[in-house]
Design a protein around this nucleic acid. Structure first.
Lengths: 300, 300
DNA sequence: GTAATGTCTTTTATCGGGAAAAAACAATTT
DNA sequence: AAATTGTTTTTTCCCGATAAAAGACATTAC
């Protein structure tokens, strides 16, 4: 068992959803771009769809025969990549307590516990190391540095430096830049979310990330853009474990974003700086309150 | 052939150099710490030293019998770790022309060319990716982003932000902090190097790194400290390919460092800022002049 | 009784192999 | 002739296995 076919399964599931909308599927290369996979995978998908009577496939003709049923889908858990599985397991262990700073991380043990090979775990740890939470001892184990208050403060310090710069660069972008349309679209989405906050408050997290990434991109600096990966990772898990007052926090954040957007549109550097600072300050506060002083983070 | 014993060979060579200085070697654990290896490796070293008649080894007694000869040493090239070998090969390819931005990187081909397994190459690429020079296409190849002028500008932009902050933090450190002694020591080394610049100018690179790392550490921010790895890597290779006017450049840099050190010692924020800016500006200039406009970097 | 040595166990670093997925090439179809 | 399908080759992803190196435990020496 050398490689799971999760790419195929995930693409298959996504392709099933396309079936609802059309009477026939497009060409193989087109489907490939649509699903983000190679033609090889597309053909496997089509083959199975034909087998299970979902479509009639004859060269260029891919006629939809019936709507997909829930049994047609592959189980969700089989569509995740190994890297995702390992990350989730690792973060769960990290946040599920007992993860003291200084603790050593054992590749073999992790691999056995998750049920994967050591190579995948090693690759994950190397990739994960750039988040600043673990550190490698040469020829030896990894050391957990811990999800501490110090970590959160160091993270937000850089975030603030970078975002203030990016926001300033954003506001200085020429009138005809495409970003202004992107910003308008995001503003609209914010307003829609604000009006349905009671039911959709948990959709904020994803909108938040798109908004900040748009701003950071204005820096035109790959190190600033890449650094947002660290923030996104932390906030991703932060949102998962800290559900306390989630709705209210998100409501406040949306309003801050709207003020921030207005400031950007005004293109007044002073206003941009003020709105950005205000939002970053409350974001930092939110993160910090979820880390008890002098202890490790714990799930809510 | 699963793992080379370069750790042993490298430690053995370093241990040989200790033989010149003493009549007998210390205990195994002590040797281990001294050489940065485990006792297992220390014992392999001692075993070979006894075999080749370098020492007489009987439990606690490790008497030196003769001075090491050049044949006793393992060849230099056998002491490098695989990661170092791969990095060097990769950077040579990158700098040896023909490395256009957008080019795709083939793991298998690289592995075959260097003569190592794909796993090691994969791990190297993952580790290397944080330098911002390559990018991964999911389930597919890596893409070379190129050693371009844009890269150098993005890199130096962050460097300047971080170093100005770190320098300010450094100057604000309390009188009794240990860093002031470190700084004094570095100042002395700078003066010594300056006085023998004609013969030792190529030693500057290493001193430069230690100096800047000391300053960055004052930020107490792991992201700032870690970012210096990117700078160090780039400058390391930069120094290797751009030998033009090396002596003069280093002479100027040493003087800038001395002025920078004096500013830090004055603890006057204005002076620190000015000295830091001046040095960073010329460092950026040096880097930029080695990258021809609109083209890839080429070795000198 | 502390610290060293001797011995045994575990973990890391690395390889080769094999299935999944991508990519390249050839043959059709419109 | 441009795009699509059919076929073959190459590459990526991941595992299990193995030697090097680290680490743990037992024994001995001072």
């Amino acid at each position: 068992m050398s490689k799971s076919n999760n790419v195929y399964k995930d693409a298959f599931n996504r392709c099933l959803r396309l079936l609802d909308e059309t009477k026939s599927l497009p060409s193989e290369p087109e489907l490939g771009t649509l699903l983000g996979v190679s033609r090889t995978t597309v053909r496997s998908i089509l083959a199975r769809m034909e087998e299970t009577g979902l479509i009639d496939w004859n060269k260029r003709n891919k006629t939809v025969l019936r709507a997909p049923r829930s049994e047609d889908f592959f189980p969700e858990e089989e569509t995740d990549s190994l890297a995702e599985i390992i990350e989730r397991s690792f973060m769960r262990r990290l946040l599920a307590g007992g993860a003291e700073a200084g603790m050593q991380i054992n590749e073999l043990e992790l691999a056995r516990e998750i049920g994967v090979g050591t190579t995948s775990v090693r690759e994950f740890l190397i990739r994960f190391s750039r988040f600043g939470l673990i550190e490698k001892r040469r020829n030896s184990h990894w050391v957990l540095k811990g999800f501490t208050r110090a970590f959160a403060l160091e993270l937000t310090e850089i975030r603030e430096i970078f975002e203030l710069r990016s926001a300033a660069a954003f506001a200085a972008l020429p009138e005809d830049s495409a970003v202004w349309a992107d910003l308008d679209r995001l503003e609209l989405e914010h307003r829609q979310l604000a009006s349905e906050i009671a039911t959709r408050f948990n959709e904020f997290s994803e909108l938040d990330e798109r908004f900040h990434r748009l701003i950071h991109r204005a820096s035109h600096n790959r190190f600033i853009v890449d650094f947002y990966d660290v923030i996104a990772m932390i906030f991703h898990y932060h949102y998962q474990w800290n559900k306390a007052e989630e709705r209210q926090r998100n409501e406040v954040a949306i309003q801050e974003h709207l003020a921030y957007i207005a400031a950007l549109k005004s293109r007044d550097p002073g206003k941009v700086d003020a709105a950005c600072r205000k939002h970053l300050k409350s974001a930092r506060q939110t993160l910090l309150t979820s880390i008890p002083e002098g202890r490790q983070m714990q799930p809510a």
